[in-house]
């Protein structure tokens, strides 16, 4: 896969002296779903705003499908659709007018059939003659997406797309993202709902304090940094963990009925097999056993802790 967006050495220092981005190098692959994770104020929105042309960068270069966002801004911006975090629409325009306006703004010839399809896909067709001000929050969010898709972008930025959105809409939205990806659209989303990144993304980037601290395929990330836990339901409660098993650092539940073993794929802690052998040797029997992978959220929290 080739990259569709290349960000090289991009920095941003605001007039106040605040360094929002330190030095960002990032490649987005064509056709992927990339999740940019980071706490509030990490620089996610600033980075997106620079790529989309809303904020000037202090230094560095960005290309979109080979087009420099400065020298060749028309070609670069024409490929991008942006759904910003805030619901910002001209409240007095109708849905139909505002989506067609967006299409015109991006230099595309009027295409009623296409705009109708976008509105239908987002369940907005019934509301096409309604003024934006009369729409519910969820509808406004759909309208923002319709505007971003109106000019048939090849790259779609979704900045916190599901913040304050109900469950149904959230699922519709992910359905739409999947469809877009099937059409070959590259999607970059920021979120702090990590389960979303976990469910949707091909790759994950973590940004903190204006620096990209990690970019990894989601699966590799989970494998490399994910911790595993094994929980054993004991036949008979234990008073304490036997001395012979101390090297496993087992946790015993308060009632003595459960043993939990935490291990990760990279540590040199002994494996599950030897633990089970040693348990047998110590005469501890168990009824059931359960293993769990840690979620992206736990990985994320751990990463940020290490970065402090």
């Amino acid at each position: 896969m080739s990259s569709i967006i290349t960000i090289a050495g991009v920095t941003k220092t605001y007039a106040t002296g605040f360094k929002a981005l330190k030095e960002i190098n990032l490649d987005i692959q064509r056709g992927e779903i990339f999740a940019l994770l980071g706490p509030n104020g990490a620089g996610k929105t600033t980075l997106i705003s620079i790529v989309c042309g809303i904020v000037n960068r202090s230094s560095g270069t960005v290309t979109v499908d080979g087009h420099d966002i400065g020298r060749d801004y028309r070609a670069a911006r024409g490929l991008i659709g942006l759904v910003p975090q805030e619901l910002t629409i001209d409240a007095f325009e109708t849905v139909w007018a505002t989506v067609n306006y967006s299409r015109g703004l991006f230099g595309k010839p009027a295409n009623k059939a296409f705009v109708e399809k976008v509105l239908r896909d987002l369940s907005l067709w019934e509301k096409k003659d309604a003024k934006a001000i009369t729409l519910s929050g969820g509808m406004k969010r759909r309208l923002m997406i319709a505007k971003a898709l109106s000019h048939e972008p090849r790259v779609l930025f979704l900045d916190e797309p599901t913040a304050g959105v109900d469950v149904e809409l959230r699922q519709d939205m992910w359905e739409m993202v999947r469809r877009l990806r099937e059409d070959g659209v590259t999607i970059i989303l920021t979120t702090h709902y990590i389960e979303e990144a976990e469910a949707m993304a091909d790759r994950v980037g973590v940004i903190n304090k204006g620096e990209i601290i990690l970019v990894e395929g989601k699966a590799e990330l989970m494998r490399k940094l994910g911790r595993k836990q094994m929980t054993l339901e004991l036949r008979a409660p234990l008073g304490a963990v036997p001395e012979a098993l101390s090297r496993y650092a087992l946790e015993l539940s308060a009632d003595g009925g459960q043993l939990t073993y935490t291990y990760d794929n990279q540590s040199d802690r002994p494996g599950v097999a030897s633990l089970l052998r040693d348990l047998g040797a110590a005469g501890i029997e168990f009824r059931d056993l359960d293993t769990q992978n840690s979620s992206l959220e736990e990985i994320f929290v751990n990463l940020l802790r290490q970065d402090q």
Partner: peptide, 18 residues
């Protein structure tokens, strides 16, 4: 001023417009 005030200016700034 109005799009600046409500924030909808983002669209103008992100559009391929000189």
């Amino acid at each position: 001023y109005f799009p600046k005030f409500v924030g909808s200016i983002y669209e103008l700034l992100s559009a391929p417009v000189s």
